[in-house]
Amino acid sequence: MDLTENKKEKIISAVKPAAFILFLSVIQNVDGWFPAVSGSKPLFLIPAVVTVAMFRGAYSGVLFGAYAGLLWDCFTTGNNFTAAYLAVAGFAAGELIRLIMRNNIATGTILSSLAALVYTVFRWFFKFFLTGTQGAFLMFFKHNLITFIYTVVFIPLIFILMKKVLSNGKEGAYIAQ
């Protein structure tokens, strides 16, 4: 049952980003691990999934998106909508990089910001606007928008850290598809 060097490397290359995503899920959702600004915390999992998709392709983007989303769903209402959204975001980021975009920190920031903005607006729209919650617009400006801005601030850092995690210590060892 000895694992070949190649298999070991493949397992490690999957476990490392998975562990990092678990860590990000903890600091995003568990109290006391990261400071909140007027009750808002950055959504670290979105740039993490987008970065994985950018470096490992759409296939990994879907799988890691679903995994990160399921971890996130454990702290929300328990349905799978966040998992579905992150799987789609992972797929889209992977395909955009494969087809039309360059893979660098600037495109990473743009794609992650876009994914975070869509998530923030959709969540607000379905949870507060469509349900006719009183003060829905106040909620958007005082919480959702701050969450989005707070997330954008940390996107480059998450991109760099995830890139390091994915690189396995070797430059150019990202794409495994």
Partner: peptide
């Protein structure tokens, strides 16, 4: 793969919706 994952997640969501107040099996 995306289609399969989305289908599995949506099936979980439907199950969660049917069992009112429950989590989807995947989230559980």
């Amino acid at each position: 793969l995306l289609c399969v994952v989305i289908a599995a997640l949506m099936a979980g969501s439907i199950l969660a919706g049917v069992s009112r107040g429950g989590y989807s099996p995947l989230t559980t």
